[in-house]
Design a protein around this nucleic acid. Structure first.
Lengths: 340, 340
DNA sequence: CGGATCAACCGAAACGTTTTGGTTGGCGCA
DNA sequence: TGCGCCAACCAAAACGTTTCGGTTGATCCG
């Protein structure tokens, strides 16, 4: 690699000062149209690209944003959300010359620590916060540090800008369908306890039942993994009272785990028990029975989140955004109530 | 945020020059033990953290490495490899104060472009190259630029340092098992054409058959997606000749798609046809029939790749590494050959 | 005692931008 | 003509490190 061509080279070659070059290439005023064109030409000819490092040091910006994946690596492996989300984020960042710094943490404390480190190093100009729980330590952290942040899918308003996909209409629609099919004992396999996310879905489930004048069915908690779905099946069947005829799971993975377990115990899905998922993972169409679920669009969410974060970084205070709603995927795992 | 505490503050407070502070904190010689301790104390007391930006500009290093995911976002969503790989990479980088810059590209050309941009910006000190194909443009790119790189799971030696997980023994073991169960017509659903990865598996499949004195069965190509597995089923059944009794797929997703399709066509898996996968994704245990597969350990691979890349960045030229072999997962989708 | 050697330390340059606070010279206007 | 104004441009500082080349003063040796 030959020695880097710097702004000085461009300035010398164009016969102007470096300040003019800087102004010209950043579209700032103070350069005549003639000179600007000449400078741009020379820069192009010399193949000059502004040094990110010089620029960062001078401008106090990192030109990067951070995302900490807080998942056990096993959950990440099958989680359909992040890949799409990241793809969306990336497509926006790229256009602005920003990069995405990704970190992985296995638990909440570790994640907070990673965010702190990112901020401390000034490695990023802003961060995404996912899986917000109540009184989240990260919200305080970013506020203390004045670090631009965007909350992704936080269920309720919090002290940072937020972008969300409203899962409630989708789940409500699903619940209506389940009820319309004649089910009366409808259980819920919820996500990790304490996540706003989780609470919200529980509420939709409960209020749909209430609206229909039904008793709230059994409620068990999992943690979004396939295994926890299996465990939930055991918990549910062990619980006192009548076995539910329909089970609404908070995500597809748990639904798959649930179905595997009850099938192994000799219960036929969907003939004896309907089971639904949530997320609409591609695989859902290929398990048997094909999973009735609700499609989400993580990519759109990533798109919106990135645009918003860049806005926050530029000092704006955008209002919260809700991206287009989710869509019901009618497949085979939900049928009408079995005739007793 | 109060004005940043810099190396000058530390130097002033400790009554030394900034060069001594720098030397002291980086463990370079030229400072007495007494002074070093005093400097460290002061730094800690003042809460000084070296500025990544200053350091980057001065040291010509970015303290970051890059990874470009080259997948359609739909494939990424269900690909079990990257999450584990990234977790492994991250755990190593973190300890060294490095960060991972992640980008997403939907095709090969876009990916090359992203790598070029990363290098041009000097945004990273090195990159990972995954899914190497023959005469890969990226290999030339990194060599031209002198950009440190590590090839991940490249099937054959190439001009950059490589870390790999040898899938051959695992697949060979699986093939032996299939043959031992009495199958004689054994098909292969391969991955994307042209990937070294793909070729290698085809070869293992072919040579195992040859060793056993069997005709090579039908071979169809997919692209690692669930859908392509389904299509492969159609292709395979449409092909002339006897229907195979066992089908060895190059990954779990295609196996799942394959099973779904042939089941829909009324063929019972595994009673009428055995199907195997590769990767050992967690979900594999929860589909029906539970998928016989070969477990890989992407996390270990990430670990090794990151260590190696850091070594290359430091100017070493490490020799290639092969991480521990894969493990056969005996489950339900492979049984002995059906009695005709 | 005089010089060489060495550890400890320091000052200044270098990295490549952006930005601030000038300094020009041309022009309009009274 | 003299004044003020403005566009165009420039020099220098600032960002926060690392590193290079010196300068001390003490120690060692003949």
């Amino acid at each position: 690699m030959n020695p880097r061509v710097t702004i000085l080279d461009v300035a010398a070659r164009a016969g102007v000062s470096i300040s003019s070059v800087s102004a010209a290439l950043n579209g700032r005023p103070g350069v005549s149209e003639d000179t600007r064109r000449r400078i741009v030409d020379v820069a192009e000819q010399l193949g000059w690209v502004p040094s990110l490092r010089g620029r960062s040091l001078s401008g106090q910006k990192a030109y990067a944003v951070g995302l900490v994946l807080e998942r056990s690596s096993e959950v990440i492996e099958s989680d359909p959300f992040f890949a799409g989300f990241i793809a969306g984020v990336e497509s926006v960042l790229e256009r602005q010359g920003f990069a995405l710094v990704l970190q992985v943490a296995s638990n909440r404390d570790a994640a907070v620590q990673r965010y702190r480190q990112l901020a401390l190093d000034h490695r990023v100009d802003g961060v995404f916060l996912t899986d917000l729980s109540q009184h989240d330590a990260r919200v305080r952290l970013v506020n203390e540090l004045g670090l631009p942040a965007v909350a992704v899918n936080a269920a309720q308003r919090c002290a940072v800008a937020a972008v969300r996909q409203d899962h409630r209409p989708g789940l409500a629609e699903l619940m209506d369908e389940v009820i319309a099919l004649g089910h009366r004992r409808i259980a819920h396999v919820a996500g990790r306890r304490g996540l706003l996310h989780t609470r919200q879905r529980v509420e939709v489930w409960r209020s749909a039942l209430q609206k229909a004048g039904l008793e709230p069915g059994p409620l068990v908690y999992g943690d979004f993994t396939v295994e926890s779905g299996s465990r939930a099946a055991d918990d549910l069947l062990a619980a006192a009272g009548d076995t539910p005829t329909a089970v609404v799971c908070a995500n597809d993975l748990m639904a798959i785990g649930f179905i595997a377990r009850v099938s192994a115990l000799g219960i036929d899905v969907p003939l004896e028990m309907s089971v639904t998922g949530f997320d609409g993972i591609p695989l859902g169409a290929f398990v048997r029975p094909a999973l009735t679920s609700v499609a989400t669009a993580p990519r759109l969410l990533g798109d919106a989140a990135a645009s918003m974060l860049l806005a926050v970084i530029q000092g704006e205070t955008p209002s919260d955004v809700t991206v287009p709603a989710t869509r019901l995927l009618r497949r085979d795992s939900l049928v009408d109530v079995p005739r007793a």
